[in-house]
């Protein structure tokens, strides 16, 4: 009787110990993962790093990047200046693109044309593109709102 009871008690203790042990690990894991800051840095809508290095962008070209859930356009002018604008056409919200041969920013939907200062110069767009601020920090280009 005695050894049976003690082995039974041992089993219960084992069950309890492993149950609580596993639970501690199982609960600690999400917490630890939670504490590690995510790659995207912080919850911000005001500025965003652009995924290209300044050197890899050639003059007279433009690229679309993601600014929150909206597109932005980073332009390197033929003179080598970096400029950034919201890439949302002010006419009907299409995404604009850079045209190397005409050196302008162009919306394909209705042939809206902006100059390299973002000013609407032809076609239906009523307003200039919203300008962003471009900062180059070493190898990184950071575009921020409120230029």
């Amino acid at each position: 009787m005695e050894p049976l009871a003690s082995s039974r008690r041992g089993f219960v203790n084992f069950l309890l110990g492993s149950g609580f042990g596993a639970m501690a690990v199982w609960m600690l894991y999400p917490v630890l993962r939670y504490l590690i800051p995510p790659k995207s840095g912080e919850a911000t809508i005001a500025s965003v790093p652009v995924p290209w290095k300044p050197a890899e962008i050639k003059a007279n070209s433009g690229r679309i990047f993601k600014f929150g859930s909206q597109p932005g356009i980073l332009v390197k002018t033929p003179a080598g200046d970096l400029r950034a604008f919201a890439a949302t056409c002010t006419h009907l919200n299409c995404t604009v693109q850079y045209r190397e041969e005409k050196q302008d920013i162009w919306c394909a939907c209705h042939n809206g044309i902006y100059d390299l200062n973002g000013k609407n110069v032809s076609g239906p767009p009523p307003r200039p593109l919203e300008p962003y601020k471009v900062n180059v920090k070493g190898d990184q280009i950071v575009v921020s709102k409120g230029a």
């Binding site: 999400p30 917490v31 939670y34 800051p37 995510p38 912080e42």
Partner: peptide, 10 residues
Amino acid sequence: QFIVTEVEFG
């Protein structure tokens, strides 16, 4: 939104 979408287990 950042907590629930980007942070792991947020």
